[in-house]
């Protein structure tokens, strides 16, 4: 059907919502039939404000670090470049860390993308499926001689973020609006995010455990992870790493290699 000039187009209505310069689409009027840009701008404002609020709720530490004006400018640029594509506002903010990493005005805050990564992992963990950590009974029933060839399945909340910056300390201070003075910016940290029950926990993992834990998360066997640990550090302590994973509740199950033997 050919479109008449006045025909309402949702595509046009939507496209203009994110463009601060755009005027009202054709056919959008007041009750007297007169063009109504100010009335239309109520929708523009609603949409932008709701997304900036959702972004601030998802990345509160980032917002505290850069201040409201900077954060809102960043948010508008993010919305333009990564058009929102999900109805699930509770998970809004996908790809924000990557966007921040490439956002020129944010280059003067080099740790901002890692803070965003941590906040994203926290958010995903908060809403992740309820899976219990492996039970003590199940753990003690595992034959020790088969552990080396075993792989591990983690809770869906688990994420590991290795940063050249003190990402946990910065995040914690920014979340509480505390000063960053006294935090050595060169002191890199690795964060392990786990939600074993209802609360999301952020653990500061010793630096030399980051690579082997990441290998296990990626599906490598425990033996292979130990090799990686030892290659990085002669003093690598496998049992310390393993008990850290158990104590944080990160492990859902240990899968023995049944076909290898």
């Amino acid at each position: 059907m050919p479109l008449s000039k006045q025909q309402f187009s949702q595509v046009e209505f939507a496209a203009r919502l994110f463009d601060p310069e755009a005027t009202a689409p054709n056919g959008v009027v007041d009750p007297n039939g007169v063009a109504a840009p100010k009335r239309y701008s109520v929708y523009k404002n609603n949409v932008i404000v709701s997304y900036l609020e959702a972004l601030a709720a998802a990345y509160p530490a980032c917002k505290n670090l850069v201040g409201e004006d900077f954060f809102n400018a960043l948010g508008r640029a993010y919305l333009t470049n990564v058009p929102p594509s999900s109805q699930l506002m509770i998970l809004f903010g996908e790809g924000f860390a990557d966007f921040v990493a490439n956002y020129a005005p944010a280059q003067k805050i080099p740790f901002l993308p890692d803070i965003a990564k941590l906040e994203r992992a926290w958010r995903l963990a908060y809403h992740s499926a309820d899976i219990a950590p492996i039970s003590a009974e199940k753990l003690s029933a595992l034959p020790p001689e088969q552990l080396g060839d075993a792989t591990v399945s983690f809770l869906p909340s688990v994420a590991l973020i290795s940063s050249p910056f003190p990402v946990i300390n910065l995040w914690a201070a920014a979340t509480k609006m505390q000063t960053l003075d006294g935090i050595d910016p060169q002191n890199g940290e690795t964060a392990l995010i786990v939600r074993p029950e209802l609360d999301v926990n952020v653990h500061n993992v010793p630096k030399d455990l980051a690579d082997p834990i990441l290998a296990i998360i990626h599906g490598e066997t425990l033996n292979h992870a130990a090799e990686i640990g030892l290659a990085n550090n002669d003093d690598f302590d496998f049992s310390a790493m393993f008990s850290l994973l158990i104590q944080t509740g990160a492990i859902a199950n240990i899968i023995l290699d049944t076909k290898g033997t």
Partner: peptide, 13 residues
Amino acid sequence: AENYMGDGGIPHR
């Protein structure tokens, strides 16, 4: 509805 479309955690509890 959309606030409870996550997989688990406090909202569902």
